[in-house]
Design a protein around this nucleic acid. Sequence first.
DNA 1: TTAATATTTAAGCAACTACTTAAATAACGA
DNA 2: TCGTTATTTAAGTAGTTGCTTAAATATTAA
Lengths: 124, 124
Amino acid sequence: MSKSCIRVFADVEQIQQCKEEINKVTPSIATVAKALSLSGNEVRLKILYLLSKETKLCPCDLSDILEMTVPAISQHLKKLREGGLVTSEKVGQTVFYSLVEENIQVIRPVLASLFNGSKKEQVI
Amino acid sequence: MSKSCIRVFADVEQIQQCKEEINKVTPSIATVAKALSLSGNEVRLKILYLLSKETKLCPCDLSDILEMTVPAISQHLKKLREGGLVTSEKVGQTVFYSLVEENIQVIRPVLASLFNGSKKEQVI
DNA sequence: TTAATATTTAAGCAACTACTTAAATAACGA
DNA sequence: TCGTTATTTAAGTAGTTGCTTAAATATTAA
């Protein structure tokens, strides 16, 4: 922290510029990072992917499809809902979850890339 | 788990289809989720953003810009490197980090959206 | 060689995650 | 009403994360 880089080539101006730039985007970064960290979980990414394919699904469906307990699914859905990425609608005793289109924009391209049948494997 | 949804309206065929579909994309999902979870940390997203702006930066620069200790930065860079999102090049005693273009594709659109000066705040 | 700089690594730790099982809540039909 | 189904909530827990400080490594220059 703080006691600044003393490197010969440290470009003080560049660093100052970056600090200002980063301050400007910090609010958006926080928002985006939140969405990415929600989508960065394999189970939740699968849920988002499935919702983008099927439009709406209930916890029970997701439990069957992903072969996980209902409470586990429910807790993931809760996080997605609180993060604004999905919304829910109760019909009888069934709760249908669906994507919140405006807030899913950030990861739209990601989901889109998954639609192309898992080609182009990345080395990660 | 398992003991399948008994809902009246459970669409057994839909669920079966989804299971097959999800099995197909699971490898890509895992890869993408890994990249997203790396980018889903505010500090690392800032690092990626800065690298996309400045092409290359050293831990010392990043420490100055983000006002964090060098070890903290170094540990984030290590994760990004191990995840294949950045690469490093040593010049003298300085190590320059830069983006790995092919592996950063997943989050390119995300970074691009940040370039437009933090407008369009998402409710999240 | 010695001292200084740049970076990484290691160990410790508080906070968070993602599951588990059990219990609570809500809607439905007999 | 009672029993069943769908979902959520709660409590417990193992594993992970992101920092801290201290020490190790590597490069440079006097």
